[in-house]
């Protein structure tokens, strides 16, 4: 079932700056405990709460790191 919104962080394109976490009005993004190929703790979606506002997308400086599905996404 599609949720209200959905966001994804590509862990290999995140430099762990934390700006998306700061910008998220729903507090639904956090740092992962994993270390990615660039040597950062990437951001990740907590899994629920996304309203599809896109704030994280626009604050993210990496072109390929964040995708936001405003109307949600089929979750496997």
């Amino acid at each position: 079932m599609p949720t209200k919104g959905y966001m994804e962080v590509d862990p290999n394109h995140c430099k762990g700056c934390g700006l998306c976490i700061e910008a998220c009005p729903e507090d639904c993004i956090e740092f992962s405990s994993e270390i990615n190929r660039l040597g950062y703790h990437p951001a990740r979606y907590k899994g629920e709460g996304c309203i599809g506002c896109g704030f994280c997308f626009y604050t993210c400086p990496e072109p390929n790191a964040i995708t936001v599905y405003k109307k949600g996404k089929e979750v496997a």
Binding site: K15, L19, T59, P61, P63, N64
Partner: peptide, 21 residues
């Protein structure tokens, strides 16, 4: 690394590039 930018974490250029693109 052909898919990440050369910019530092949190750099404003990335955001501005994105708005422009």
């Amino acid at each position: 690394d052909k898919t990440n930018t050369h910019y530092c974490p949190g750099c404003g250029h990335g955001v501005i590039h994105k708005l422009l693109a």
